[in-house]
Amino acid sequence: MLTPETKIAIYRMMYLAQQWEMQLLRFLDDGQVSGFYHAGRGHEALEVASMMAVRTDDYLLYDHRGCAHMIAKGMSMVELYGDFLGNDKGSTTGLGAGIVHIADPAHGVLGQSGTLGGGHVLAAGAALSIKIRKTDQVAVNFFGDGAANRGTFHEGANVAGAWKLPMIYILQNNGWAISTPQARVTAVEHFSERAAGYGMVGVTIDGMDPWLVYETMAEAVERARTGGGATLIEGMVNRQRGHYEGDPMTYRPDEEIAAAKALDPVPATRQRLVDEGVLDDGALTELETEVLAEVQAAAAEAQTGTLPGRERLDQGVYA
């Protein structure tokens, strides 16, 4: 199932997502992008490998943590940059959606609830729609350990379990709900323990291991497509940066941050490809050079966009 080609494709996408974000952070530093960005460094393996195990017509309700899941789902890097730059190259043609409200119906990217955890019930509705329309699509809902505690999760997960909906919940557990550590507000050690209460399969995995993520996701997707119902995948990950750019992270011990950064899944996956003999260093460097050029080209194209005028405001409110 996990062929060398797939492994290479996963690493390529992880590296691309990482580089895409590094360029976005440069835009932020330059003052070209305003607003809050919730960097996804450290989450690449979970976001990328899971999305590489689904099809274009499967649905994604992403979360605010980086953009790797959207990129891996097939969204254009130009459109993503355009949304952050707030110009007409963006998916929302100038609404300046930033991280929160990017969308791409052609790739099944349904958007995101700005109020965290709002996606739990929308995703369940999308999964119900799949069941009613009798297709073999799946709906995937990303969220963090913070949004896992929303009441909406209960309502969404309950019907997903009761009706065996083709629903996959991907919980990115980095242990921090902004500044609040999980243990302070949650009794269970692993959220996957809750899955049983909804009649769905729940697993906790190392979300930094892209091979494991891919295989776990492939199994969940197969279960969903064949009527076996919903899965809750809890991926343990490390948030390398602040909740948002500019977060002073005074609440987090320095050694904990250093440990998180030391476990960076991007170079770790690169090393794995070398160790497993899938690609050598030279071939990887070549791949990375190619990716960097793609990212830079996308960034340059996005910067050619123009900011909308005031008339953009009331366009498209109603169908």
Partner: peptide
């Protein structure tokens, strides 16, 4: 039963799930 669906007492799902279904090709 596929088109006339009894739900649990879950208003956030009823409305939010309706939105999810409406976004994906149905008319709830």
């Amino acid at each position: 039963a596929d088109r006339v669906i009894d739900t649990p007492i879950s208003e956030t799902f009823l409305v939010g799930g309706g939105v999810g279904a409406a976004l994906t090709g149905l008319r709830p």
